[in-house]
Amino acid sequence: MNTTDYEALAREHGLERVGARPPLGEYLMEAWRRRNFAIALAKYRIQASLHDSRLGMSWIVLFPILQAALYGTIFGVIMPSDTRPDNFVPFLVVGVFTFGFFSSSLSGGAKAVTGNVGLVRSLSFPRILLPLAQVIQFAMELVPMVIVMAIIVAAFGEPISWKWLLVVPIYALMALFNAGIALVVARLTVHLKDVTQILPLVTRLFFYVSGIFYSLELVLADNPPWMLTLAQLNPVHDYIALVRYCLVGGTELQTLAWVVAVASAIVTAAFGIVFFWKAEERYGSE
């Protein structure tokens, strides 16, 4: 028998090619059907990672508090500067906690496929669930962090208001943006492992340009206005700025930040999904 015979035989008996990439709609439907696997993966990974530590779950909250204390000491006490707003501690805590959601999605997304070769090689499911499970995991870890953040902010005298509830849709938009980023880097590292080496630098870059421990508006006050606008086009800065607008007094609302936050969430997520899906058949070939 030659090659064409097999193909014809397969057609005659209604057999379909195994591992073929399904159309996008079907792919997403299947991913939706299997969503509970991604959620369980996220939930159990958190439990497993903290299983052996004495303080267990409290590390989810403890680590960001220590991180905020560290930055607060360095930038608030050791190196004070006039580029910092008056209510610096709430300002910094919101910045550090919110940025953590982005940076963990970036590094977690990079490892989502390449770090789970065993899963990819032994079970069939839409691979998109792996990077998404990572982002779901970080979103779950964010919940207690936001509560701690709110307590710190309130403790430093910020009035509690209805605006605080707006952080929920803002973080939802940011989760979409992060998912898009995670999907893109998840595929890039499959093609080129070297990407993993560059990512810490990318994280640093975003950390410094997103105004975590200084106010972009104050730093760029004496420069031409286009520089500030350019800096404000960075979505990571805008998500942080919006959460600050909700929780921390003295920051005024910028329309541009809302536009960028919504648009970049939709565009990045859509691009990430298509970009990741295109290479579905490649995952597992390493």
Binding site: T3, L15, E16, G19, A20, R121, S122, S124, G284
Partner: peptide, 25 residues
């Protein structure tokens, strides 16, 4: 099982073949 892509040629099946094992999960 469709887990390792083919360089050429193909596998056809009536329903998705499953590799026995959940160890990795």
């Amino acid at each position: 099982a469709g887990l390792t892509p083919a360089a050429s040629g193909a596998v056809y099946a009536q329903s998705r073949p499953a590799l026995l094992g959940v160890n990795a999960a």
